[in-house]
Computed example of a mutant assay.
Amino acid sequence: MDLKSENSSNGWTTTDINLEKLHKIATELILPGRFLFRLLNGALVFVTNLMARILGSNPVRRHFHLMLSAVVLFGPVLSFWASKYSIFANSNHYLYRKFLKSTWGWTCIFTASFILLLSLSARHSLSLCLRHLSRIGLVGLLWWVCKRLLTLLEDASGTCYEPMASAEDTQSSASSGQTLLLLHEDQTKASCLRAHMLWRGYEVSQDVLILCLCCLLLVEELSVFGPCLARAKPQQRSPGGPLRFVFLLCVVLLAVWISLLLCLLTHFPTFPAQQLGGALGYLGWRGLYQGWYRLKPSWGCPGLPGEGLLTTTYGDGQAQ
């Protein structure tokens, strides 16, 4: 009995020692983790405050569309200095394949997430949140209508050609100095390009259109974060980390869209198709954010970004 009691006591002692060691190891790991978390959180707060101050400033809010217009108009001039061996000169680049064809999808997901978190943080009102989210739906509807109309216009005004493939035709075309083509009148632009034939007609760059529209949309929606931070500062109620992180993702997305726009204008200039696309994107933003959204609620408009949110504090549902 004495041996068993000694073994059991020794066993408990060993277990206690192991638990103490595990506790010390966990403590040593938690302390650096907390320090790293505070460091990252401080960096997130600093960067988001800086970007919110920049995007919420009067020069950016009033003149960003002018800067974007200058980029669209004079961006093709950069093609004289661009290298054809650049990685961005390849139309199959990763950015083009993964982002350019799904520009509206990325913008819709990130912007809607930011509006949702901002609305719920400022006002716990589902109706107000849905009203602000409806702006994204209206822009999406505008993009779908423009895309369908431009596709119909291109199919109606363009023509599909197939180069002559025989040797005799090739010799005759070389002697005349002109490329002989076979006409295909029953082809649409999509089917013509899928068949590796040539499409000639009036075109409007849909890529430049949606990039300009998304850039203007992001600036409009993100510009209210700075005033919201200013409203929340006196009450010492800073927005949470998830809202700041989503805001930072939206800023990164804005930078990606501007970079893609510059790459398209520099390496694949098509005048005046790209300028027409930029003009349509500007007119769409102008008609919604500078026109309809400024009307009274009786007109069924969802209102401007931040409307109904800047009069409340974070975490408080009562108006100031």
Rank of each mutant, 00 (worst) to 15 (best):
A112K: 13
W104T: 03
S205A: 14
L19Q: 01
T312I: 10
C160M: 13
L128W: 04
C301E: 12
L116E: 12
L36N: 05
F99K: 05
A273Q: 14
L19K: 10
E162A: 15
V219C: 00
D2Q: 09
L40I: 11
F88S: 13
I30P: 04
L29N: 01
L304W: 11
S173E: 15
I17V: 14
W292M: 08
S113G: 12
S57V: 07
Q187R: 11
K98C: 08
Y289S: 01
R200E: 15
H65W: 13
L29H: 02
K4T: 04
C301Y: 02
S57G: 04
A165D: 15
T15G: 08
L283C: 06
M67G: 00
N49C: 14
E221T: 01
S125W: 06
S102Q: 10
Q290M: 08
V47C: 14
S102Y: 15
C250H: 02
L276E: 00
W199V: 10
E162N: 13
V60K: 06
R131Q: 15
D186I: 08
A279V: 10
F268Y: 10
C129E: 06
V77C: 12
T312K: 07
D2I: 06
L265H: 05
I210Q: 07
L209S: 01
R97Q: 14
P76T: 04
I258G: 00
C250T: 10
L128M: 14
F245G: 06
T48A: 12
D16S: 15
K101E: 12
W199F: 01
Y161E: 15
S79T: 05
S69I: 07
K21A: 05
Q274R: 08
H267V: 08
L133K: 06
I210R: 00
D186Q: 04
F46E: 08
A190W: 04
L261Y: 11
G291A: 04
S173Q: 15
L253E: 03
I136H: 00
G308V: 15
E20D: 05
P302R: 03
T151E: 07
L55N: 02
R237D: 14
A167K: 10
R286L: 15
T313W: 05
L254Q: 00
Q318P: 01
F99V: 05
G11W: 09
S259D: 05
K4V: 02
L31E: 14
Y282E: 01
V72D: 01
F37L: 03
E6G: 04
A156Y: 01
N92P: 09
T27N: 12
L116M: 08
L217G: 03
D155I: 03
L31H: 12
L142N: 09
L229G: 11
D16G: 01
K84G: 07
I136Y: 04
V219W: 00
L213C: 08
T170C: 03
L120F: 13
K233L: 10
A26M: 02
K296A: 12
C228I: 09
P305R: 09
G158Q: 11
D169E: 13
T111K: 14
G105L: 14
L295I: 00
T111V: 03
T170N: 10
Y85M: 03
L130I: 01
K84F: 08
K98A: 00
M197V: 06
A190H: 11
G281E: 00
L283V: 14
L44F: 02
R61P: 07
N49V: 13
C250L: 11
D316M: 10
V246F: 04
L118I: 13
C129F: 00
L152R: 02
C301P: 09
N10K: 14
